[in-house]
Design a protein around this nucleic acid. Sequence first.
DNA 1: ATGAAAGCGCTAACAA
DNA 2: TTGTTAGCGCTTTCAT
Lengths: 329, 329
Amino acid sequence: MSTTMRDVARAAGVSVATVSHVVNDKPGARIGDDARRRVHEAVEALGYRPNALAKTLSEGSSRFIGLVADAIATTPFAGQIIHGAQDEAWRHGFVLLVANTEGNDEVENDAIAMMLEHQVRGILYSTWYHREITVPSTLQQSETVLVNCFTADDSFPAVVPDEEQGGRTATAELIAAGHRRIAFVNTTTPSPARDGRRAGYRAALVEAGIAVDEALEFDADPAQEGGYDVAAAVVDSGATGVFCHNDRVAMGLYDGLRERGVRIPEDIAVIGFDNQDVIAAHLRPPLSTVALPHYELGAAGVRTLLGLEAPPVGGRRLIDCPSVPRQSL
Amino acid sequence: MSTTMRDVARAAGVSVATVSHVVNDKPGARIGDDARRRVHEAVEALGYRPNALAKTLSEGSSRFIGLVADAIATTPFAGQIIHGAQDEAWRHGFVLLVANTEGNDEVENDAIAMMLEHQVRGILYSTWYHREITVPSTLQQSETVLVNCFTADDSFPAVVPDEEQGGRTATAELIAAGHRRIAFVNTTTPSPARDGRRAGYRAALVEAGIAVDEALEFDADPAQEGGYDVAAAVVDSGATGVFCHNDRVAMGLYDGLRERGVRIPEDIAVIGFDNQDVIAAHLRPPLSTVALPHYELGAAGVRTLLGLEAPPVGGRRLIDCPSVPRQSL
DNA sequence: ATGAAAGCGCTAACAA
DNA sequence: TTGTTAGCGCTTTCAT
């Protein structure tokens, strides 16, 4: 098979212990310059590559971190979480074991079992949209950090987006652009996003001394169709600025407004949420929005799993949703 | 630490060999019913979970497959490849080790080294868009299958989408809908997609007895902006149907056509390519398109890596791009 | 400064 | 039918 440490030792005329020491550059190891050199040469010559599995077995602790996601395929979001988690894991010498469950409980349990059998240091349990979950019982046996989700009793450390701050940011952008009559097209789906963004919207208005007017708050299906359908009502409301629950709704709203001859941003300014690149960056005009910090969620998840970041006290760590200005306001 | 096979053996009053046999349900192992039962009970009682790493080390062959991707985060496509690869890998008892390189060579080499150290059975090297590549030298040391990419000399087994068949399919849909004057908005970027889809477009026309008219072929930047900009030319061409290089171009074209009062599909039928869900399914009207078979690419990649599917003879295995009919034609 | 040897959790001959 | 034992490739303690 492949060349082992023994082969290297033999070739260098030293013991495996010596090879181990120089290969790992162990701190308190007194190795003669000569031996060290010979080992390095042998490693080169033989193309030696350490067996990480054997190392793990011997050391007793693995360098794996598990990431179970409910929807890698369906959305571009999961990709960002994976990416952030992986970068951060690598930074600390860890490797990601990724499993996609597509919401199937059985697959989920298998995935977790598989990870446990591979001695993962811990498991990141993530969802593609921010929501409350109940964690599978198997997870109790492992260090677990929730990413983009949380439990009702906050019994697991969790990392989630700060929806309220995001809503406040979006609304504040509109206010900063001079708008006072600001509509809010929220989602019909009950969720932390719905409640949080609304709270942020209202807080920003209050902060700016603008009266909250519930007649300016609309509900729409959180997709293009919802935004399109609500266009008439938004126009009728007399709003000069609209904060949309997400970019897809904004995209539909664009269509609805255009059909009515309403120009963006001259007649109505629009801001979205999610910063879904395929959409936001390429609408006409490009859509100002607020980004969901998926990359950072993944990274922060890994950090709290590894204990590099004190676990959030209240249970959930809130991650900022930054503003992404473009030309729609 | 965690409970080992020895603990189970002790608890069940048998040897580790016996435990190993019953836990793995070894075929040619004569184990008494009683012993078998006692082992199972002990496993239950102690919550024993086999250590996959030790198993691998002992067996000498790992159950890992590496997947290096150049852009997990940037597109929804990579997710599909990962998903397909993972499902197929699991089906055969393998686990995916995913690494995202974002096109960075150094990261890529580290990723490959890491995978090799983890004794992966082989590596899937994938790109988010179909293209020619040169494989990193480190990959020579491993079983490698290219996914969604290929080398100039086809020296590595590769699995790629059948662009030509896709182009033919798209065009045939338009023809089947009764169109004879069909425009093609191709990308300006040289690529297998550009050449393949054009070849397919022309082949379909010829097949239907329609003369190829190069005045009906346009080049556009492969994004919304490109589609928008080409709208005037398309309208002027007198085409009654348009095949767009991708869904994003189609999205831009929608805008351009709408501005000119041209209705879809009444005045002009449109078909896209990629089946990018966020876009295609939610345009007005929903966009008919041809899907890039990312899931299947990942799955087929795993299969050829595991030798379950004879490696493509010519070098590349072509995967079909299926039609996804909606309401734009 | 270097080496011998035990052991990580498991598998697979081979004995019994 | 079951147990003993020798590895798998590596780390690490303890001698030398």
